[in-house]
């Protein structure tokens, strides 16, 4: 790494920690954030000392000879909001599958922070380490109520015995209520999730993701099927998460990408990554990427 990058990384990290500390002190009795300076050593706690939340290195995945990912390398910094675009079949969903443990790659490495090897863990372990994923198709528990959907996503012991004995505390209630408000489903808590509209389901899924309090959010086409207004509100929500969370957004909707890139903390230049045939075709500011000849060629054809 160059000194420049190192410096930038450490700046980002500081900003991230500061923001996290701020958000934590708001809800707790304080003192819990005092340890942010220590080197994280617990094996299941993500270590972001080096400023990166996700390192994907030289990943190759092939299905029956077809290379879905071809030596893909991608690094996401702490607190970053990264947009990933690419034509159909570029490998976006497969990339998410690899990161979340659904697909094991043929070669390469993937680390969460600098200490958690994603390729050694199962989906549920990766999720509880702090990687949240939203599917392309909204996936909620159709026959449970909206409230129960969020309750299941609530951060807590995920083991069988714990959930047999579990009872909601008033703090849990408050947290779910806040989330309902945030995702604009305040009055729909007792509705069956299957009855929600498509856009509402998308929101509910985002809400469930946030209930897990993930450090990294992977969002696969989060605004597909949303109205313009809903899309705008989603962009706002994501921008408000920026900094305290790291986000990777895969999207086709260039208008939405534009909103994400140009909104929020303007002082930072947001990077957009273009995937093509399983590897990174271009990476940089949105305007640069859009001007890139090869990108134009891929998108528009010769």
């Amino acid at each position: 790494m160059t000194p420049d990058l190192l410096e930038e990384g450490s700046k980002r990290r500081e900003a991230y920690l500061a923001k996290q500390a701020a958000s934590q002190t708001a809800g707790t009795s304080g003192g819990q954030s005092a340890s942010y300076g220590r080197v994280v050593s617990a094996a299941d706690e993500v270590d972001v000392v080096h400023g990166g939340i996700l390192y994907v290195d030289d990943i190759t995945v092939s299905f029956d000879g077809f290379r879905a990912l071809n030596k893909l390398t991608l690094n996401i910094a702490v607190g970053e909001l990264r947009c990933i675009i690419g034509p159909n079949g570029a490998g976006k969903t497969t990339m998410m599958d690899v990161i979340t443990g659904k697909t094991k790659p043929d070669s390469g490495r993937a680390f969460f922070g600098s200490n958690i090897d994603l390729l050694r863990l199962r989906e549920s372990e990766i999720a509880s380490r702090g990687v949240g994923r939203k599917f392309q198709k909204p996936t909620v528990f159709e026959q449970l109520s909206v409230f129960e959907n969020l309750e299941l996503a609530l951060k807590m012991d995920r083991r069988v015995r714990a959930s047999l004995m579990h009872k909601l505390t008033s703090a849990d209630f408050d947290r779910i209520a806040e989330m309902l408000k945030l995702i604009h489903l305040r009055d729909s808590g007792s509705r069956t999730a299957g009855d929600l509209s498509h856009g509402q389901k998308q929101w509910l899924e985002i809400g469930m993701l946030l209930m897990q309090d993930p450090k990294l959010l992977l969002l696969d086409e989060p605004v597909a099927g949303m109205t313009d207004e809903e899309t705008e509100r989603t962009a706002e929500l994501f921008l408000s998460l920026e900094g305290s969370h790291s986000l990777v957004v895969v999207e086709h909707d260039m208008k939405f990408i534009g909103e994400l890139v140009n909104g929020g903390q303007r002082e930072k230049k947001k990077i957009v990554t273009v995937l093509h045939e399983g590897s990174v075709l271009a990476e940089g500011a949105l305007a640069d990427v859009q001007a890139n000849e090869r990108v134009v060629e891929v998108y528009l054809g010769r």
């Binding site: 659904k102 199962r122 599917f135 909620v140 528990f141 026959q143 959930s163 047999l164 579990h166």
Partner: peptide
Amino acid sequence: ASKYGRVLQAIRDAEGRVLFTGYNT
């Protein structure tokens, strides 16, 4: 009626979501 029971129903509805919510189904 327990949360365990709701996890079971969630597995029935969308097992992938349950996995990615951090439950080892």
